[in-house]
Write a protein that binds this DNA or RNA. Structure first.
Lengths: 348, 348
DNA sequence: CTGAAAGCGCTTACAG
DNA sequence: CTGAAAGCGCTTACAG
């Protein structure tokens, strides 16, 4: 294998390939870009020359003329919370983001578009915005979960092509993909009721996140529609430890609770533990329904009954919408909403 | 705020800034790049023009001439394992990678270098290699944990500037940063012995990973040097669920074990659970020492005594070495080894 | 200290 | 179907 490229950092140039193949630089460019109008023999000669020289296109030069980078950014925007050693720990500890990455990659891969993952917290937005504006990527998949996050609006105002992971909280005309959170919470309430639970309660997500609010509202609305009044609740933080803490407190204050809706699988793991540490059996004494259907649901004992959010499919859809938007800059923004489903396992 | 940039995707060009400021394009370039030789008044005028036009340099054009992108890649190379829904789930579920990202970012940020995170598994190497060769980044921080991973060798052979996260398993002259794994395991054994444990055992990491092997060897070597013979062991997989399963089996086969070294904090979480489910008290009946000192150690009950691996500092060092290498291409490769330390909490 | 000019490595009308 | 030429938006010797 006498590929001898990149030695000393010097990649061969397209002119060198052209010379080796005895054709013009334009022809080399055409075969690389798969232009249909190239003579088959010449194409072969050029391809051989490319292989022999170990040629790889210089992406900067190409981008300069095409105005396309063939990469898109996945910006994961989280808020640094008090007593939070690092928001990165949260990002790399929650299965949600792995699912998003997997889904986006699967949609982008066939189009040969690279995914560049950029986690960021509020202290960092400046850098990210600059990165995006400098033209490193053709567009951005923006995962923004916090109500006050200014990033969606900034990205929109700067005219950066983007798709957001949920309905933006400020009124901007941006494309987004979402799941019907309220419906999901309603499904959870319905299931708990249908299995005979009489006293329902919920551990919510952070109420400064739309996902937290909407699941809470959906749960209460459904119960209100069935004639229930005030529902015991406690605000969680979407972490395992938080779920454990909240369940302990909730059951201390309301020992009669026999049906619990926990607004994320990660919190459910902790909650399940707390319930069992209290000597209550799941689901017989307390039935538990989670939300997400991530890998955490399968780490639960008993296996977690939960509301499935099709995160991979949603991320893939985000990528599709983004690619369409990149291809047709004038395209009108649109939103796509997925329906969650109940996945019955052992905890309820 | 009448910034009106990027409208219709058209960023202003440097020539437009020059015209607005009444100077030449070269002068604009100089003030942007902080050349010392610019008259103060002219500098101000230019800076105002930049602000007014909302100018942002076109990175592709700059890169084409400077041959620098001012970004580096963090390639997280994992192996897809059988019955593994997705290697991405592993990456986004293990606090280790968040620590690496945090450490690398902290070192890169002051130099205004962007970190581009690229998770990859074996089926994917081709794409990653191409990405690197196309010149999207100036160099790569390569997190490679598997013995058979071909990526370090490929990256090296292609002449891509890189720093690896551990001593490469094939003999290549590459810079790397590592922790003294064997020493860490020895510290764990010593601590267990010193607190009076008589029958030690270990849950190892995957033995096809150097980290798994070295911690296992270090543990056995220390015990051998103290006159112990065969040590009960079972091979784990660095996951929480795996740790739980392994501890259950290990204690079933060896009920007399009273000191357990678990080769990662994540596995320790599961192991602790299993030990307690068996009705054994920690640390009184079974003392447990983990490895990492990640956030998982603090999620443990009781709080986990563990071997601290300074992952953030190691990642920062990787970034420093990489930047030095980028600045001086002729620089000789070098390795840096960090010492682990014992962190005593409640589990041993 | 500043400007005119060359050049980085590609793609793409435009001729032929 | 192929080539010569222009041009993408910058930086950087080179003069002045």
């Amino acid at each position: 294998m006498s590929t001898r490229p990149a030695r000393g950092g010097q990649n061969p140039t397209m002119d060198q390939v052209a010379e080796a193949a005895g054709v013009s630089r334009a022809t080399v460019s055409r075969v690389i870009n798969g232009a249909p109008s190239v003579d088959a023999k010449i194409r072969d000669v050029v391809q051989r020359a490319i292989a022999e020289t170990g040629y790889v296109p210089n992406i900067a030069a190409r981008t300069l003329v095409t105005r396309r980078t063939n990469s898109v950014a996945l910006v994961i925007s989280e808020h640094k919370r008090p007593n939070d050693s690092s928001f990165l720990n949260r990002v790399f500890t929650d299965p949600y983001f792995g699912r998003v990455t997997a889904g986006a990659t699967s949609a982008l891969r066939p189009h040969d578009i690279h995914l560049v993952i950029i986690p960021t917290d509020s202290s960092d937005h400046h850098h990210v915005v600059r990165y995006l504006r400098q033209g490193h990527v053709d567009g951005v998949l923006l995962i923004s979960s916090h109500e006050q996050d200014p990033l969606p609006r900034q990205v929109h105002d700067l005219g950066i092509t983007a798709v957001v992971s949920a309905r933006p909280t400020s009124p901007i005309a941006a494309s987004y993909v979402d799941v019907d959170q309220r419906l999901g919470a309603g499904l959870a309430a319905e299931h708990l009721l249908s299995r005979g639970c009489r006293t329902l309660a919920t551990i919510t997500g952070p109420l400064d996140m739309p996902a937290g609010q909407d699941r809470f509202d959906g749960f209460r609305s459904y119960l209100a529609s069935r004639g229930f009044g005030q529902v015991p609740s406690i605000e969680g933080d979407f972490t395992r430890a938080g779920g454990q803490y909240c369940a302990r407190r909730l059951l201390a204050d309301h020992p009669d609770v026999d049906g619990l809706f926990v607004a994320s699988d990660l919190m459910s793991e902790g909650a399940l533990r707390a319930v069992q540490d209290l000597g209550r059996r799941v689901p017989d004494d307390v039935a538990v329904v989670g939300f997400d259907d991530s890998s955490a649901a399968l780490d639960c004992r008993p296996l977690l009954t939960t509301i499935r959010q099709p995160v991979e499919e949603m991320a893939a859809e985000m990528a599709e919408v983004l690619m369409a938007q990149i291809a047709s800059p004038g395209r009108l923004p649109r939103s796509v909403t997925f329906q969650p489903t109940l996945v019955v396992r052992d905890s309820a």
